[in-house]
């Protein structure tokens, strides 16, 4: 096979990647009004094989987003409403005693995690025990019950939500568990026009029909393609500097970090950024990762991995502001 032919194949693959992504977005936007950034980042997470933590008040279309995506990707989706009395077995599944051919045996009854896209609604309302059961499935993509490990279907994508307003009786996710989320996204209130469109689309007799644009296998392939996008040393160094700058104990970190941040991001954050930046570069039609790609995905990838200091909390500083400051300083 000649070099030009090989190049054509790669070019075709990249073009397909971009067209699939655009088609997915267009299909989702039939039902989901606005929230372009959230949709973009959710799709990037799915392609990268990561999970998303959505933070927003109820009624902003989080469940609708999951359902729409699952239809567009032609994947199975389930929803769990997390409550304080929810047990790990409720989400993972359990062995139940069944009689088969006159013989009583324990049979594993799969829980709702056995799906492709899982909406974990208000994850912070469940006890840490239940939270950690879900987080294990997110990391390992397996479920172990009674010494038997059950592998989850691929792709497996968890979209957890949490309500930032009602914090009474909740169990905030610890930092170690937050770190497992690829992105944390803020779902914002729609603007006037978007609001109008939402009302039009959701209160009529007919609802937009979502077609399947792609499938799970293709999503996995797209993830593999994205992993091959090259990154120059200068850009990689920029990413490393960005990650290191979030650590207040480092000399090179800016004053704002030293003042308001207690802990900086882990290497997992840098991994997430690079992976997401590669996908972002392909979406933008480039064959290399640019600083812009890194900057575009830095906030959702880093905002939940940084811990504000008491002073930062007291002054109402957000990690987003600090990340923006760091990016501004580095450019």
């Amino acid at each position: 096979m000649s070099v030009s032919h090989e190049n054509e194949l790669v070019e075709k693959e990249v073009n397909e990647f971009r067209s699939t992504f655009t088609a997915l977005k267009d299909e989702i936007s039939k039902f989901i009004v606005g929230q372009d950034e959230v949709v973009n980042h959710v799709l990037i997470s799915i392609i990268a094989g990561g999970h998303v933590l959505l933070e927003g008040v109820p009624g902003l279309g989080k469940t609708a987003l999951v359902n729409t995506i699952s239809k567009a990707i032609h994947l199975d989706s389930k929803r769990i409403q997390f409550t304080p009395d929810l047990l790990p077995a409720d989400i993972l599944g359990t062995n139940i005693l069944v009689e088969r051919d006159g013989e009583k045996i324990f049979e594993f009854q799969k829980g709702p995690v056995f799906t492709n896209i899982l909406l974990a609604d208000e994850i912070n309302r469940a006890t840490p025990k239940t939270q950690s059961a879900l987080l294990e499935t997110m990391q390992e993509k397996t479920v172990t019950v009674a010494n038997k490990t059950h592998i989850l279907d691929k792709p497996y994508f968890v979209l957890a939500t949490q309500n930032p307003l009602e914090m009474d009786g909740t169990y905030p996710l610890p930092e170690a568990q937050l770190d497992r989320f690829f992105f944390k996204l803020d779902v914002k209130m729609p603007n006037h026009d978007e609001f109008s469109q939402i009302l039009d689309r959701t209160t009529g007799l007919t609802r937009p029909e979502i077609k399947a644009i792609t499938n799970g296998e293709r999503i996995i392939e797209m993830g593999k393609t994205a992993c091959q996008v090259p990154i120059a040393e200068d850009i990689k160094n920029y990413l490393i500097k960005l990650a290191i700058s979030t650590h207040p104990e480092k000399d090179e970190s800016p004053n704002v970090v030293k003042q308001y941040i207690r802990y900086g991001v882990s290497p997992r954050a840098a991994q997430a950024i690079l992976l997401a930046a590669r996908i972002h570069a392909l979406i933008a039609g480039r064959y290399h990762v640019a600083k812009e790609d890194i900057n575009a995905v830095a906030i959702p990838a880093m905002r939940h991995r940084m811990l504000l200091s008491f002073e930062g909390e007291a002054e109402g500083i957000t990690t987003e502001q600090i990340i923006k400051d760091i990016i501004q300083l580095l450019n």
Binding site: P230, I231, D234, I235, Y287, V289, A290
Partner: peptide
């Protein structure tokens, strides 16, 4: 990025295709 990619010699085939593109 181009200047950096042109310096690399030990890349695999797919990577080279990306560099060319």
């Amino acid at each position: 990025s181009n200047l950096d990619f042109m310096k690399r010699s030990d890349s695999d085939q797919t990577q080279k295709q990306f560099y060319d593109l």
